[in-house]
Design a protein around this nucleic acid. Sequence first.
DNA 1: TTGACAACCGGAGGCTCTCTCCGTATATTC
DNA 2: GAATATACGGAGAGAGCCTCCGGTTGTCAA
Lengths: 192, 192
Amino acid sequence: MSSEATAAPPRPLRADAQRNYDRILEVACDAFREHGVQTSLDDIAKRAGVGAGTLYRHFPNRDCLLAAALGEGRQALDQVVVTCLSREDAGEALNEWLIAVAVYLGSYDGLADSVAQAIHDDSSPLGTPCTALKASTATLLKRAQEAGAVRADVNADDLFVLASSLAWAADSNGYDHSDLRRLLTLVTVGLR
Amino acid sequence: MSSEATAAPPRPLRADAQRNYDRILEVACDAFREHGVQTSLDDIAKRAGVGAGTLYRHFPNRDCLLAAALGEGRQALDQVVVTCLSREDAGEALNEWLIAVAVYLGSYDGLADSVAQAIHDDSSPLGTPCTALKASTATLLKRAQEAGAVRADVNADDLFVLASSLAWAADSNGYDHSDLRRLLTLVTVGLR
DNA sequence: TTGACAACCGGAGGCTCTCTCCGTATATTC
DNA sequence: GAATATACGGAGAGAGCCTCCGGTTGTCAA
């Protein structure tokens, strides 16, 4: 498909470079989905029919490739925010959002780990999108709190960490979506 | 008709072997604490002043070494179970236990991951102790439920997964004990 | 004490994976 | 149809895991 336009590239990629970029990304998505974030990068290069050097020129490290591979999922999440914001039940909207975040962070095996690492590393391209996720979480939380659906002393960072944890739990324990929802219910409704 | 005595060790280690075993374990504890569960095993061998072969003979893989290094912490946990069982407030006792489990699984960076992997792998020596932890969780949960402190539809496995998740979250986000407690409160009291 | 043997040691080396370097090839431009 | 910036590829350095086996040493009976 079409490539991703970063802020303002001074010059378009050469045709062969663009071809390779796209091919690598396509293969990487499959590999991550199939073998998790720890899949071999050299193997991705091989499967894409390029040398290792070419892969590393386009994506200097694993996180860069991962961030690129997550691009589409991120756009889908932006859509979810809009939908959630338009829902009447603010508490339910927040739940829906947290599930979406957990599902997103569970896209690939081990992704929650990578993201958690990256979030404390300004140089990682995985950190930036997460800041946006946190911001959206804050917005939806505030709305839920104003509607009286959520206690006032809950903070957005904890909530994001909780969503990440659920993603991790699902990954590590082979939980599916319904398990995820059950766990989230445990969290949101509480043990009383 | 069993041919092997699993309980009694058939023969004590030779003196030099015992010395090496102890030394490796000591160095390993430090290394795990300092660099997490992914620390280099060859490096541990080097620091312990033995060859790689010696390390792998005593501890065939990382999980074996990890399980041995966790031995003491596990005994401390057994103590916690006893204490919790003797507490009057069954709900509070369960909370205390979950915190203890989370702290235990946060002993080393990445431990929660290793344990979660091992739990679905019968051949891993890390799995066995976890079965015990789950059993204790079930006992304390049942007690809390009978005291009416916890809903009846909560199950012990989910609770254990939740405790693991908290350990993971603490690891990955640099949370300390008070953060951990706050997160657990979020979970147990709920958002509403 | 000594000899014989089982138990144990060490580290070379095979394998995999990451990432870099640089001689070579090719798309683009004029 | 050059000239040139851009991009390619794969050899290879470095690090880690784990095995294999020739050599060493603790142990015990005599």
